[in-house]
Computed example of a mutant assay.
Amino acid sequence: MSAKDPGTHHFWGLRNPSLVSQVEAFSPDAVLLMNYNYASLYNFLWQWNSHRVPLLFRGDSHRLVPPTGFKAQLRRQIISLIYQRFAACLYVGKANYEYFRYHGIAPNQLFFSPHAVENNRFFAQVEQAKQAVIAWKQELGIPAHHRVILFAGKFEPKKRPLDLLQAFLQAQLPQVSLLLVGAGALETELKEKATAHPHIYFAPFQNQTLMPRTYAVADIVVLPSYGGQETWGLAINEAMCLARPVIVSTHVGCAQDLVHAYQNGLTFPAGDVTALANCLREAFSNPQRLQKWGMQSHQIISSYSYKQATEGLRKALKTIKEKSFKF
């Protein structure tokens, strides 16, 4: 490591002059990269003999917020040149697939390797989590008969928890509470806006072991993110493992894959508070349907697992191996 300020917080934070030789020492059949946005990885890409040992890439970027202007076109050209170094790319979902196609990756070079969480761990804790919810609602002060809208994540601008709070107030849902779980820069503002309104509750970040309980308390889970940085939204995977219906904005990377309108949830135009309020009203207008949406979530998420992610990698490796024999 030769960086003056080592770390992943900036481009020059990773500088490893011996990276190529160290990877070569493993005598790999292929090399998989998950990132390239550091000086050391750019250096590796240009030095590595990809004709001898092929490179693969797995990323999750999308263009749900299309960039514009000259800089965007220049960036497209540069990224397209980078992707020419890879024999195959693994895509995590539909929006990510379109991103790779936009940058010139051919369909026969793309392999589905979905974003996933440890599904079986969540599945195994469903009943235990449901039992824990009774005491937790009492601890938080949420009326036992209230249904719950949940936001779980960082209280930061890109996640737009304020949009959800405003939509909740606008929706005026009877016997429904809003629970915001997390912490971050917007916490003070959120609590100030919630002060005069009943049935808005807060809980700090929950330990990973408590996340099944966190999702189990919800009747619906909402991720209202805005902008291009919500490349997937693994919280939605976790919520669906607990058979929760979901509402996400159109800027959330997993929206096209995991949220099937009126089957397990709803989507709304990112940043549109009124549209989100309407989604909340629609979701709670039919309690029996909402429960069915949750069961459908559980079924959908079963196909987004580590097994499927691994299978995509295996298919990519098999394909590039077969191609190498043809030369």
Rank of each mutant, 00 (worst) to 15 (best):
A152Q: 11
L165N: 04
R160V: 03
A171L: 08
H146M: 12
F155R: 02
P161T: 09
L162I: 15
L169Y: 06
A167R: 01
Q170F: 02
R160I: 05
L162F: 05
L169M: 14
L150E: 11
I149Y: 11
P157F: 12
I149N: 10
K158Q: 14
V148F: 09
E156V: 14
F168T: 03
L164T: 08
L164K: 04
R160Y: 01
K159L: 03
L150Q: 01
Q172L: 07
D163M: 02
V148W: 07
G153N: 06
E156L: 06
P161Q: 09
A171N: 01
G153R: 01
Q170A: 15
A144T: 14
P157D: 11
A144H: 13
A167I: 04
H145T: 13
K154C: 06
F168L: 03
L162N: 02
K158N: 14
A152V: 12
A152C: 14
A144R: 04
Q172W: 04
R147S: 15
Q172V: 03
Q172C: 11
K154D: 12
A167H: 10
A144W: 04
A144N: 05
A167C: 13
I149A: 09
H145N: 14
F155V: 04
F155A: 06
L169K: 15
L150H: 01
Q170L: 15
H145D: 15
H146L: 09
F155E: 06
F168N: 03
Q166G: 00
A144I: 03
L169W: 02
A167M: 07
L162K: 00
F151L: 07
F151E: 07
K159W: 05
V148G: 13
V148T: 15
V148P: 01
K154Y: 06
K154G: 15
H145R: 14
F168A: 00
G153Y: 06
L162R: 00
A167S: 01
P161E: 08
E156N: 10
F151T: 01
V148H: 05
A167V: 12
K154H: 15
L169I: 15
K154F: 12
P161I: 06
E156P: 00
Q170N: 12
A171Q: 10
R160T: 08
F151H: 05
D163H: 14
D163S: 12
K154L: 15
Q172F: 07
I149Q: 09
Q166Y: 11
R160G: 03
A171T: 02
L165G: 10
L150F: 10
F151R: 00
A144S: 14
I149R: 05
L165C: 13
F155K: 01
L169T: 05
F155N: 00
L164G: 12
L150P: 04
L150C: 13
H146A: 08
R147T: 07
E156W: 04
A167W: 08
V148A: 05
K158G: 06
A171V: 08
G153E: 07
K159A: 13
A144V: 11
L164D: 03
P157E: 13
G153T: 08
A152K: 00
L164Y: 05
R147N: 12
R160N: 14
V148D: 08
A152L: 13
P161A: 06
A171D: 02
K159C: 12
K154N: 13
Q172T: 09
I149W: 00
I149E: 08
R160W: 00
E156D: 09
H146T: 03
P157C: 11
F168I: 01
Q166T: 13
L162V: 10
Q170T: 11
R160F: 05
P157N: 10
D163Q: 11
Q166S: 11
G153L: 07
Q170P: 00
